[in-house]
Simulated scan of single mutants.
Amino acid sequence: MSNLVRIAPGALIIGKPLPWTVYDAEGNILLKQGYVIQTNIQLEQLFERGLFYPRRSDTPEPEPEAPEDIRPRNPFSDYPQLLRTLEYALRAIEDQSPDAQRRVIGLANLVARCCREAPDPCLALVHLYSVEPTAYEQTLFYAIICHFVAEQLLMDEKRILVLLGAALTANFALLPFLDKLNHSRARLSDDQRAVIHKHPELSAAALERAGVDNRLLLKIVAQHHEEPDGSGYPKGLTSEDILQEARIVALAERYTAMITRRAYRERFSITQARDALSQAGKTPGDRRIHRALLDALTPHPPGALVRLANNEVAVITRRGDAYRGTVAQAIVNPTGNRYIGAFKRDCSRPDYRVLQVEVPEMLPSMDYGQLWEFDRT
């Protein structure tokens, strides 16, 4: 197939689920999205066998908005499109394209729609792909987390879209360095520290040069590393001068960083991240934002691997609330062997209550369409 290309070295990472389906030269599916490469040998065999994935340059540039697209959102199949649309939106800022602002807000609309129509799968994306995300993936996670915090805080829809636009662009000036920084064990150089401390202002300035004129968005970007006690940067503002939205972006970045593996430290488990956030918050406003995130995630957010009372290992697929219980799909039986397929478990039942969040050394492969039942629609 002409629109398929050989996988480039570095595109796949051991222990991280495939972000897209892999094909052979004839276009037949060989590995579905969600398959996890377990060893270096598997990785080498994958490259040697000439597997392919859709060629970016052979696919049309995504439109910033597609109002005629009324398909129900499936965040798993949308994931490559979301990342590609983000790439084009950020490139429009870099090129100072006249449609840069429209692309950013268009992507914010698409993320918001995914979060509204498929909230649990969107949160699952954050947790399933947090092993070692790229800079673009991290950026998308920030926007998803911001959406759920904003909903908990009952923010109006227009303000949420501006918040998401800011989350998608706040680290624009850092993007050329972010992947390298995340994979480096070396201490930051003086130049790197200078860029980090200046990047909120640099990002806001780049947005302005590209014609982004939404003052709220620009202010959120410029303030998203300020701290209520004045210890933040770049201006050392204090709580009364910092927008709530800027603190939401900061929290989204912090949570994503906690659950992400970096070269210089291990990732937090979801339980550890929750414990840290529940004890943090320098002001009543900050603590309110933290509580909003914790309430949105619930103790067992979608995408989390958990051990059930019957000793099965399952993946959470639906959060519980006051009206319905948490739902999981059991993928490993009580003796530690992988099920063929998966079995739905109502975690409000004693036999299937969640005992603990599991932190495996290697995520198991999963068929996301099957687990979240998109294949049945």
Rank of each mutant, 00 (worst) to 15 (best):
V22R: 05
P54L: 07
L355W: 07
M155G: 06
E44A: 11
F47M: 11
E361I: 07
R73F: 05
R185P: 01
L371N: 00
G232R: 01
S130W: 01
V104R: 01
A124D: 00
L218P: 03
R318F: 05
I160T: 07
D275I: 15
Y323T: 13
E157F: 07
G27N: 06
Y323G: 13
L18A: 02
M366V: 00
F141H: 09
R187M: 15
A108N: 05
T271P: 03
P17Q: 10
I144W: 03
A250N: 13
Q279P: 10
E117L: 06
L305H: 04
T298E: 10
A204L: 12
P200T: 06
D367R: 06
S203M: 05
E373A: 07
A292N: 09
I196R: 04
I331Y: 03
L355M: 14
A342R: 08
R73D: 00
A167F: 03
L297N: 01
L82T: 02
A330N: 02
P234K: 10
P301Y: 04
K219R: 15
P360H: 05
G106H: 03
V162N: 00
Y368F: 09
Y88C: 13
R49N: 14
V111H: 00
A166C: 09
F268P: 00
N171K: 14
L308H: 01
E245K: 13
I29Q: 12
F177K: 11
V315I: 15
V306G: 01
I13P: 00
L243R: 10
K344T: 09
Y88Q: 11
D286K: 13
A222S: 12
E266M: 13
L123S: 02
P200K: 07
A292C: 11
D156S: 13
F76K: 06
A342C: 13
V221E: 00
H127F: 08
N171A: 09
F172H: 11
D367M: 04
E240A: 07
D58G: 13
Y233G: 00
A246L: 04
R345M: 03
F76P: 02
Q279N: 12
K282P: 11
A150H: 03
K32M: 08
E358V: 09
N333I: 14
H147E: 09
T238V: 15
V111W: 02
G236I: 12
L123K: 02
G34Q: 05
R291M: 12
W372V: 02
A322W: 14
D99P: 08
T256R: 10
A167N: 07
R187N: 14
Y323M: 13
Q138P: 00
A66M: 15
M155Y: 13
Q33K: 11
